[in-house]
């Protein structure tokens, strides 16, 4: 309940400037419209059988998943980083609250409008190209949970880097730029050349966005699905363990003056 109040407070603060909300919404719409427009140009020039409807649905769902799990822009990581950089962690540490859930609720409140819009994207994406099997929906749920766990741990790791570097934004941005391409947020992974695709799929990035998005189109349970699920499970376990130990180790290095 406390964390919901934190979320609500942050969200309501954003509502003070209605024109700003409108600008944020239009910004997100522009992003998706021109990404789909660009890919429609690519499809027109290619021999592939993919329809514009499919690619529009893919990007709507991919951007929605990326935003909902915070894989696309590292929202929680940025909040943690900012708090550490400006020595603001102290005021949360002395309170009887859990630090990570507090920071998560605070981030969710700040980007509440983004999350609402992501849900709209997701619904529109599903409406344009609905999943054709129960298997696809079940796999989506599995992949989505994995994506959430990986992205959550990923955000903690990115944020905890600020304990070790005075300003880790450059390194954080570098990883996010690579993630944008390799996660499938900018290019569906099936467009990658065959040999590169195999290596890209072994990295944790596709499990955060491409995995759940692609799951909705799966109609049969085959070796490829088992492989993708295995990779996703592997990274969710590895990242969670690493994030836990890295956070526990890093927080001991925190220094700040006053609260």
């Amino acid at each position: 309940m406390l964390y919901f109040e934190i979320f609500k407070f942050k969200f309501l603060r954003f509502l003070t400037y209605p024109l700003e909300i409108a600008a944020s919404v239009i910004k997100r719409l522009i992003e998706i419209i021109f990404l789909v427009f660009f890919w429609s140009l690519v499809i027109k020039s290619s021999q592939s059988q993919i329809e514009i409807r499919e690619i529009a649905s893919y990007f709507l769902i991919a951007l929605a998943v990326g935003d909902l799990v915070m894989a696309r822009w590292g929202g929680l990581g940025s909040t943690i980083g900012r708090r550490i950089k400006y020595g603001e962690m102290s005021k949360f540490m002395i309170k009887p609250i859990d630090l990570i859930p507090h920071l998560y609720a605070s981030t969710m409140g700040t980007v509440g409008m983004r999350m609402i819009l992501s849900l709209v994207y997701f619904i529109v994406g599903i409406a344009i190209n609905p999943p054709t099997s129960i298997l696809g929906i079940s796999l989506f749920v599995l992949f989505f949970i994995n994506a959430f766990v990986i992205a959550f741990a990923f955000n903690i790791i990115l944020g905890a880097m600020y304990f070790h570097l005075s300003d880790a934004s450059g390194i954080k941005n570098s990883i996010e730029h690579m993630s944008r391409v390799l996660s499938g947020a900018l290019v569906p992974i099936y467009f990658f050349p065959e040999k590169i695709k195999y290596f890209v799929k072994l990295t944790p990035f596709p499990s955060m966005i491409y995995g759940p998005t692609n799951a909705l189109t799966i109609n049969s349970f085959n070796n490829q699905v088992v492989f993708d699920l295995g990779v996703a499970f592997f990274w969710s376990i590895t990242f969670t363990i690493f994030a836990y130990y890295f956070w526990s180790y890093s927080i001991k290095r925190y220094e700040a003056v006053g609260i």
Partner: peptide, 25 residues
Amino acid sequence: WANILSTTFYTISMLIFIDVIYANV
């Protein structure tokens, strides 16, 4: 100085993006 890393990685990601597209068209 890490900003150089960020801008360089952005460019690398765009170069990969272009290469992937032109592998198909």
